[in-house]
């Protein structure tokens, strides 16, 4: 975790109310991995007191740049859209735990709901770099919300579902899962809670429905995997990137928790944002 200045290089509205910004922040990019995030300070004095967390949308270690992708939902995100190239912001990062891809995984399934694309986008780059095949299932409300394919690597198979059927599959993105779950070795998802909940139940029953052997049966069979460890995530079929309102983003304020199956609150900023889906309590807890 480092605190560093970042210079805005490029800022554009890629979709209505959705922005993609490129920052030059070599200190933060070094060692950053897909799934982690930065906590960015608003430089305004008009009453914004909290930083804003953004997933690494893409990470370019060589150039020392990162991109963030966000929707303008309030005064904080609007403040970011008014920044101009050359402006500097204060970033804290890289924060949180990354996605863990099993070394034996060949087929990577990414599932994004709306702005959840920001959470899994950089994993596409990472997986392709490591020679894996990547399919991205994207769900949006309508054609105007669909992430532009021009912003994805050519190697990615991109499948779209829209609620109104204006482009791609007519329905929820989760309805596309049966066509891909047998192909996929591991899946990684980010999006609305409802979507993640459906995915998690699909993942839980996947082994039974498909009759597939679980990864990791040979190596470390019978040895317990410590909950929340990188190994636990690596062995999970589905890893999810969770979202919560955040205060400090370093684990001090306990504002951003989700419940584990053991009933223990897990900090999204510290133990997450990436969790093995079977480690989370999807029934609501509390």
């Amino acid at each position: 975790m480092r605190l560093a200045g970042a210079e805005l290089l490029d800022s554009r509205e890629i979709l209505p109310d959705q922005w993609l910004q490129t920052y030059h922040a070599p200190e933060l990019v070094a060692g950053a991995r897909a799934g982690q995030f930065v906590h960015v300070r608003t430089g305004d004095y008009s009453g914004l007191v909290l930083r804003r967390p953004f997933s690494f949308n893409t990470i370019d270690t060589l150039a020392g740049t990162l991109t963030i992708h966000f929707r303008t939902v309030g005064r904080g995100t609007e403040w970011f859209t008014r920044l101009r190239p050359g402006d500097r912001v204060d970033m804290l990062g890289p924060l949180g735990r990354p996605f863990e891809v099993d070394p034996r995984t060949q087929h990577v399934l990414l599932v994004a709901g709306g702005l959840g694309i920001a959470g899994v986008r950089s994993l596409a780059d990472e997986a392709i770099r490591d020679g894996r095949q990547v399919t991205l299932l994207f769900g949006g409300a309508s054609a105007r919300d669909v992430y532009p394919s021009s912003l994805l690597p050519d190697e990615v198979e991109y499948v779209v579902a829209t609620d109104d059927g204006s482009v791609g599959h007519h329905g929820f993105v989760t309805e596309l899962i049966p066509a891909y779950e047998a192909w996929a070795d591991q899946a990684f998802a980010c999006g609305p809670l409802g979507m993640l909940r459906v995915l998690s139940s699909l993942a839980a029953s996947r082994g039974r429905r498909l009759g597939v052997a679980k990864l990791g049966r040979k190596r470390g069979a019978g040895r317990p995997v410590p909950a929340g460890s990188p190994l636990a995530r690596r062995k999970a079929f589905l890893q999810v990137s969770m979202e919560q309102n955040m205060g400090c983003a370093v684990g001090a304020c306990l504002g951003c928790v989700v419940l584990s199956t053991a009933g223990a609150p897990q900090r999204v900023c510290r133990e997450g944002p990436v969790f093995a889906s079977e480690e989370l309590d999807w029934e609501g807890g509390w």
Binding site: G47, V49, Q244, N245, C256, G285, W286
Partner: peptide, 15 residues
């Protein structure tokens, strides 16, 4: 265990 989420939110000039 604490309270259900959301637990924090920004308000004008505070949280």
């Amino acid at each position: 265990i604490g309270n259900p989420t959301p637990r924090v939110t920004e308000t004008p000039g505070g949280m």
